[in-house]
Design a protein around this nucleic acid. Sequence first.
DNA 1: CTTCAAAATGTTATAGTATTACCTTGCTAG
DNA 2: CTAGCAAGGTAATACTATAACATTTTGAAG
Lengths: 159, 159
Amino acid sequence: MSAIEFRDHDHAACMRSTMQAAEAQCAARGLRLTPVRRRALEILLSEHRALGAYDLLAHLSAEGLGAQPPVAYRALDFLVKAGLAHKIEALNAYVGCVHPGEDHAPAFLICRSCRSVAEAETSPTKSRLGDAARAAGFRIERSVVEAEGLCPACQETGA
Amino acid sequence: MSAIEFRDHDHAACMRSTMQAAEAQCAARGLRLTPVRRRALEILLSEHRALGAYDLLAHLSAEGLGAQPPVAYRALDFLVKAGLAHKIEALNAYVGCVHPGEDHAPAFLICRSCRSVAEAETSPTKSRLGDAARAAGFRIERSVVEAEGLCPACQETGA
DNA sequence: CTTCAAAATGTTATAGTATTACCTTGCTAG
DNA sequence: CTAGCAAGGTAATACTATAACATTTTGAAG
């Protein structure tokens, strides 16, 4: 069962355990979770919402961690490559990964009203798209699966 | 069977029939396929490749059909809303639709080397993502399904 | 046929997203 | 110690997209 992101939960604990998992990942793979990268990840994880690169940059620079776009983009690049964050293509925005480490092909539920994002799993090869790819002789390397709509909370408030 | 886009085919005939279908669509739904829109669609369909808005604009303005970005974006907006073209979110680029009219939830196979794009079908509600959405009480309104990788031709040339 | 309103187009300016290039810092392997 | 390299700082710029407003075209009503 998934989509804890849309439900009430102990978010402080959620963040703590995710950060721990991220650190473990980095340690295991010899990646350096430097202060900027660490803080960027914390900011992305602080809500289950998609944040633009410039939003992230604003947070970082408010804390004295770099003032120019490349700072944010480099941190995001690292986090995405390390599987600690994901890019939401439909929004040109970024979200912290809630299952760092598990090698996964993520799929997202994105609320168009509050920009909350929940992460689910896909199996690219098992889908109809996988069938089409096989039939066409196409080799899938990366897949983007995103569904936009309304989260439960925003449905209720009629947003 | 699908993915004609990656295979040899009579592309002139392919374009002709697609344009006819697009015209029929517009006629049936009272939409106006004006010269700029028509030409934009032809350009998008001239290869099964994703074109950036500014690439399209370059083609259009070379033919005297408008020189500023809004010209291209308005044409694209019309075509996408009418279901005659699709946006490829992973590339911020656009591609002509090869089955205009059929109400469909498209999925794409995108070659990272030559930017060729083949269109397939998804059933958002039937996928694992659909299951996750239902379980979470999330209402899907639009879905983006894109797979990046290598098309058969680019696999051979070792691109 | 004329008139009017809506739709489409033209143009300027600007907002938002992302990268290139170059320089400095600090670590670490030899 | 120091050469080499990964990371971070900064300036400039490229790419993607939209806002706002003026003008023209179109088609329907009278």
